[in-house]
């Protein structure tokens, strides 16, 4: 715990912890340049020397001057800005006052597990978001409650699917199929603008982080990552549209009313 103790640490161990930090950032949606920058900053703090890092949205490689190479695969990606902020802050703190590697490892573990709000509250936030968006998309007060229900259902389904290991785009499609249900019920009951409810719910699934990160990666010159993230955003959007269309198509084919 003594920060002044200067390192005889096992280099491979340090490199592994640095790669962990990179994986934590990458899997919560950070830009490539941020991941590389954080790992280089940590390498500087632990006197590893110049680190060569290759970061792709699905994998990262780090090479230390002593010949150690680490390859990590990133399979699960989600939006957790709390992890992003926490690892970012941690790397700054460590660059200023280095801490023992074991402690760094522990603190990265804490940062990854960082969920500021409990899982049961997420559907409530999604409900609020969907309700507000429905009002911006031409909805009236009558659309508030169905949109909130739709947002909550969408988020519940998505959370459940994510923990069960269903592939991302399939999860998006299934979530969108169910997201549309409250709008269909409202249309059946004769609400004038069910589209506002539908859009509110589906917006909960929007790949907003992917789009922003793709643009920022492109500007920074990380072209592979920019292209891959644009593709992921496009696939996700296509899956969402396909899911919503599927429900709506079946509803229309059954003779349902849709203004």
């Amino acid at each position: 715990m003594d920060p002044t103790r200067s390192t005889p640490y096992e280099p491979s161990n340090v490199l592994a912890v640095i790669a962990d930090a990179g994986v934590a950032l990458l899997s919560s949606g950070a830009e490539v340049s941020r991941v590389e920058d954080t790992m280089e900053r940590l390498a500087g703090a632990y006197q590893i020397g110049h680190l060569e890092a290759v970061v792709l949205p699905t994998a990262l490689f780090v090479y230390a001057p002593d010949g150690q190479t680490i390859l990590r695969r990133v399979r699960r990606r989600s939006v957790n800005l709390a992890v992003l902020a926490a690892v970012n802050q941690l790397s700054r703190d460590v660059a200023r006052t280095p801490i023992p590697v074991d402690e760094l490892k522990g603190r990265i573990g804490q940062a990854v597990a960082r969920v500021r709000y409990p899982a049961w509250s997420h559907p409530l936030f999604a409900a609020a978001g969907a309700a507000f968006i429905s009002q911006l998309m031409g909805g009236t007060r009558i659309d508030l409650a169905p949109a909130a229900v739709a947002g909550a259902i969408t988020q519940l389904v998505r959370q459940r699917l994510r923990t069960s290991g269903v592939p991302g785009s399939v999860a998006d499609l299934l979530s969108a199929v169910l997201a549309v249900m409250p709008a269909l019920a409202a249309a059946w009951a004769g609400i004038p603008n069910p589209g506002a409810i539908l859009v509110g719910a589906v917006m909960v699934l929007t790949p907003g982080l992917l789009m922003t990160t793709a643009v920022r990666d492109g500007i920074a010159g990380d072209l592979l990552s920019a292209a891959a993230r644009l593709l992921e955003a496009f696939l996700s959007g296509a899956a969402i549209a396909a899911g919503a269309s599927l429900s709506l198509y079946v509803y229309l084919a059954l003779g349902g009313r849709w203004p």
Partner: peptide, 29 residues
């Protein structure tokens, strides 16, 4: 001293053209 995404991602959602995509979808259907 926070990542830019913390501020961009929540604020950009309202500008996503969801309603246009929805209108296009309904028209096709």
């Amino acid at each position: 001293r926070e990542p830019v995404s913390v501020f961009v991602v929540p604020a950009i959602i309202v500008f996503v053209p969801g309603y246009l995509v929805y209108q296009s979808m309904v028209a096709f259907l």
